[in-house]
Design a protein around this nucleic acid. Structure first.
Ligand SMILES: [Zn+2]
Ligand SMILES: [Zn+2]
Ligand SMILES: [Zn+2]
Ligand SMILES: [Zn+2]
Lengths: 123, 123
DNA sequence: GAGGAAATGAAAATTGTTGGCAAAAGTAAA
DNA sequence: TTTACTTTTGCCAACAATTTTCATTTCCTC
């Protein structure tokens, strides 16, 4: 049976405190402010657990690699600014899902990554 | 100044011969049929060069990791069937690009991964 | 051809992630 | 509570993927 641990609680708090996709290193850094002894392997183990639980979701960024974000925040997508290298969450969806794939394909989910320049970098 | 090498030419040929996203290991395997001595580091180096040149594009597969595919094949996206674990190229685009991000964001490119069941698995 | 810069191959070094194990901590029954 | 049991942790070794180092080879220009 699954036990509650201060480590996993801390990791959950990290995601609650930062409302954006986080990398493993960020989870570790922020998590250590809550539980000083927090270990990297523990972070990996718990990220996996939280994904299995459906509490987290893993997304892939073309250059940043794996990022983790909370589920249940409503359908949204991501924008990567190649100037400041930040990932933004973009609410809503501009995909015409019914036209997304040819007949016969059953589309159950989709992931969209936008690339460009964010408002503050665009000046 | 950039020089033409038999190795890079071989790598380009590999992509021309296989019209689908390829992993590093596949590029190495197929490439060695053209240049026996082809080295893994050379593959990595040239994949990077070809991406910088805009000749290749890197995409991330949720479980296979990084894949490389030719650019200039027309705008398209990818579909991952969670039954047979195959990646399909989906021609065309169903994204309303003008509505994809809030005002201020300059969208220059986007990547879409569809998930679901392919026609042959859907029966 | 000769000279010089760039690219390659081989291996070491990094980086990212997972696995083993003894010790620590959570849970439930006594 | 305390005890007994099991999960989870921290540390570290083991992997895997990718990058770097460096001596040697190859390409290109003269
Ligand atoms: Zn920016
Ligand atoms: Zn959407
Ligand atoms: Zn299928
Ligand atoms: Zn598109």
């Amino acid at each position: 049976m699954r036990r509650n641990t201060t480590q996993r609680t801390a990791i959950e708090q990290v995601f609650s405190q930062h409302e954006r996709p986080l990398g493993v290193d960020e989870v570790l850094t922020y998590g250590r402010k809550l539980v000083e002894s927090l270990n990297q392997a523990t972070v990996y183990r718990n990220l996996k657990i939280l994904i299995d639980d459906g509490w987290l979701k893993r997304i892939f960024h073309p250059s940043l690699g794996a990022l983790y974000e909370r589920t249940g925040k409503g359908h949204h997508h991501h924008f990567y600014c190649h100037e400041c290298h930040r990932v933004f969450e973009i609410p809503g969806c501009a995909l015409r899902e019914d036209e997304a794939a040819p007949d016969g394909f059953v589309v159950e989910d989709h992931e969209i990554f936008l690339f460009g320049v964010c408002p503050s970098c665009a000046g």
